[in-house]
Simulated assay, not measured.
Amino acid sequence: MVKPLPVDVTSPEAVYQGMKRAGIDFVVSVPCLNLKEVIPMVDRDPDIIHVPVTREEEGVGVCAGAYMGGKRPAMLMQNSGLGNSVNALASLNQLYGIPLVMIISHRGVEGEPICAQVPMGELTTQLLEILEIPYFIPDSKADAIEKIQVAWKTALEGRRPSAVLLPIPFWR
């Protein structure tokens, strides 16, 4: 039985609960300011193998290997890293039908204080559409839990990557 979500759940707790409820048991992470509280939650969980990496394309490959080994992989990353991982997503995951959920901190959108984040922020959804990667944007913390589960189901059934975009207002 799935425990109900506490009323005062934080954004990091919602992301973590979404992964847990989706059955994610292998997580690759790339450092990100917005994900800084989620990563330790994953790292402490004895039911999740956590592999920190320095580049997103490396994470795509590690997750592909984990899936081939029977795991349910997700990658925690910032949207700027989506550009870094395009070739790996297309030539590995999409070509060979390997599911992956990318939980993406969507920088460069409403409320972004750093102008250098804006160009990729504006291109993120277009890039996902060009790559034919389904994506979900939750409208609340509770919805994030649901969308992460739906993203895993979509990735598994479609044998392809999917993404959950978490914009700046989600983290407030």
Rank of each mutant, 00 (worst) to 15 (best):
Y135E: 01
V62G: 06
A116D: 11
L95R: 11
R44K: 11
P138K: 08
D47K: 12
S105L: 06
N34H: 14
K147N: 06
Q149W: 01
L89A: 12
V60L: 13
L89Y: 07
T54D: 05
A151E: 05
G69P: 04
E56D: 09
A88P: 04
R44A: 10
I39R: 03
R107E: 11
Q117M: 13
M68P: 02
E129F: 00
E146I: 13
Q94L: 13
E129L: 00
A88W: 09
D139H: 15
G70K: 08
A64V: 08
E110N: 00
M102A: 15
K141H: 15
D43A: 14
K147Q: 15
P99N: 10
W152I: 01
I103H: 13
P113I: 01
I137R: 15
T124L: 01
C32W: 02
D43P: 00
G111D: 12
V51R: 04
V62N: 05
M68A: 15
L76S: 13
G121V: 07
G65A: 11
V86D: 04
I49G: 02
S85R: 03
N84H: 13
I98R: 11
I103N: 13
F136S: 03
V62L: 14
L35P: 02
P138Q: 09
P31F: 08
P113H: 03
P134K: 12
I49K: 12
A151D: 05
I103R: 11
E58G: 08
M77Q: 13
A66L: 10
S80Y: 10
P31D: 08
V101Q: 09
F136A: 03
I137P: 01
A90C: 03
